[in-house]
Design a protein around this nucleic acid. Sequence first.
DNA 1: ATCTAAGCGAGACGGTACGTCACGTCTTGGG
DNA 2: CCCAAGACGTGACGTACCGTCTCGCTTAGAT
Lengths: 199, 199, 199, 199
Amino acid sequence: MQTPEKSKRGRPRDANARKNILAAAAALLDEGGIGAVTMEAIAARAGVGKPTIYREWPNAQAVAMTAFLETAEPAPQGPRARSPLEALRRQLRKVAGVFATRAGRNTAMMIAAAQNDSELAKVFRNHFILKSREEGRTLLAAAIAARELRKDIDVETALDLIYAPLYFRLLIGHGPLDAAFTDGLLELALKGLAARRSA
Amino acid sequence: MQTPEKSKRGRPRDANARKNILAAAAALLDEGGIGAVTMEAIAARAGVGKPTIYREWPNAQAVAMTAFLETAEPAPQGPRARSPLEALRRQLRKVAGVFATRAGRNTAMMIAAAQNDSELAKVFRNHFILKSREEGRTLLAAAIAARELRKDIDVETALDLIYAPLYFRLLIGHGPLDAAFTDGLLELALKGLAARRSA
Amino acid sequence: MQTPEKSKRGRPRDANARKNILAAAAALLDEGGIGAVTMEAIAARAGVGKPTIYREWPNAQAVAMTAFLETAEPAPQGPRARSPLEALRRQLRKVAGVFATRAGRNTAMMIAAAQNDSELAKVFRNHFILKSREEGRTLLAAAIAARELRKDIDVETALDLIYAPLYFRLLIGHGPLDAAFTDGLLELALKGLAARRSA
Amino acid sequence: MQTPEKSKRGRPRDANARKNILAAAAALLDEGGIGAVTMEAIAARAGVGKPTIYREWPNAQAVAMTAFLETAEPAPQGPRARSPLEALRRQLRKVAGVFATRAGRNTAMMIAAAQNDSELAKVFRNHFILKSREEGRTLLAAAIAARELRKDIDVETALDLIYAPLYFRLLIGHGPLDAAFTDGLLELALKGLAARRSA
DNA sequence: ATCTAAGCGAGACGGTACGTCACGTCTTGGG
DNA sequence: CCCAAGACGTGACGTACCGTCTCGCTTAGAT
């Protein structure tokens, strides 16, 4: 939280320990899910004392969250798209692709973990969701600028409209989460559900 | 799930015990969240032995899930709407209203619990999500029949488009979940994001 | 306890059940020691309901005790000995031999079980110890009559003097329990420890 | 048992906890017998967590055994006897006296407990029986040196001859366990059972 | 160069909940 | 009216982690 006074006396934190802890937590998360990420297991695996972990994190899920966030590398940019809308389509496909991997399961587990810990929820929102929405917001803005999207839309609502279904399928698993879905979803969102009155 | 063989021998299950267990679980869930729903606490509160609980459920979260599902009473039907679209708008408002209550928190917690237990996930999907979607599907079909919606839409995708944002906000909490949101959301979904080319 | 009036109504006791119960208890005792003789296990193995067992015995150890007592068949008489003392020597050897088998372990376990249940202790004393002592008493009486033993000895004390060491070694296991031991023991008991003053 | 490697790392065992655990076990043993010595009860009474007990003992009876052994204080030495034989007589009376108290019941229960746990049996034998026999061995040696006992006797057998009857009566309860018994027992053991042939 | 405060690993501490086992009782339908 | 089957409330089992607390040992800035 704060590091203002920099007491500076005594042995400094061991940067290596932090790295080992997060690596252990990430490995445990991948191997056995959030339930396998226990303080005991992290400490044992990282070759670290439990107090060393508690010095920096309040509980095991917080370590898992940090490990998750530091592992979730920014997606590599694909080839330039020929239009903003095309870029948006590709972005949705990419997200669906990630959600289909272990990273997707981890994301779901982090959302789950956040339900029981408001501090965790805040961290997840600020470091994962907001970042992801920022990307989407940029894409939408570009599409609006290119007159591919209506300029009067509420961007926040539009973001939910487009991205929420991906998270929903990730979390509920009631339907496939593939390119066919994201393409259909985007098309529907673009055209709208309403019947054309004129005609 | 199934009761095919009807062994019928021996003392039958005590229906009262089951009721007490679910009541206890529901109370604990409301009071302290999913973390408070432990087998020990349920057993103590219900005046029931732990083995009695284990006879019917494999773990505490499964009890919580059953309690949640049996508690989630079917929403009372509001006054007749003047049109299918109006009915859909009201339905979305109602869901948002429920999500703003403790029932919403419980729903979020059940979704979270389901992330770590595929059996639980299946139960939740079949008994809560599918039911809820069925309602939505009916509303959409009526609106299509009334020519208020395009008749070529993929209903499953449309359902995700409309309902997922509510779940998303419930779970992430990155924005309000009120009538203004649902109304805007519905409007956007109806009109679509795309700029009108002709004009 | 009582069967005087012969009510005769309803289904009569199943004599086969009792036999099965005792056989099951004996088998469990032999296989896993007294700890394996549980009501559940007996009932399951005997194909009998627990209440049927409780109707006749107050707890599992009581069943084990009955099974033990009914299993402990009277030792087959060996060839006639040429003297009462010789018969006594053979008898001690035989007891030591039995104590070295599973029956010995069972005996030890019954003595142990009796320590925590005075009713059990009484049954064991009356049906096992007293019977065994009666045999010994007969042998001693014969030896006295044959003037091989002093006629002024207190028989009860003499019985303890001769037999107790066998039980002691059975229970404590601090030394061998073989013919060499019983022979030496008997010789020592006969001659006495005291130094001969005259001489 | 052994403390060879002296790992020395980490927080050392809490001597106070150990003391409390043994005190609680001893109290429970006295109050309700071996059956009352449960891990739960010990932990609750000692104000200690169960794992702390399991760190040092494998089960409740092992705790009871340790408590028993540490409670069984060395008997206070009585006034000097005028002869080794007299000392032996007094020692037997003293043992009988102890056996008549709660300590005697506890001893019986420990012997019982040892029947179902060979590790427990070994501990009991090494720390209780062997110690007690050492005392007896010393007394016999002195009596032999004083020419009150024959010098050709096998001491181990003689010890069993003298002491086993006390344990036998303690465990079976078929007869009194008082000074009259021990005196008669000793006299019989000294003089022997055999009729004098000469004279 | 020494002091000394803080971090380090290890691991024991008092706890809570776990999921299982057996207890002894009760309640079914069937013989 | 007894039988088998089996559910009931109870309570102890032994285990896994929790989050805290000593330990003895670095480590490195301040003296």
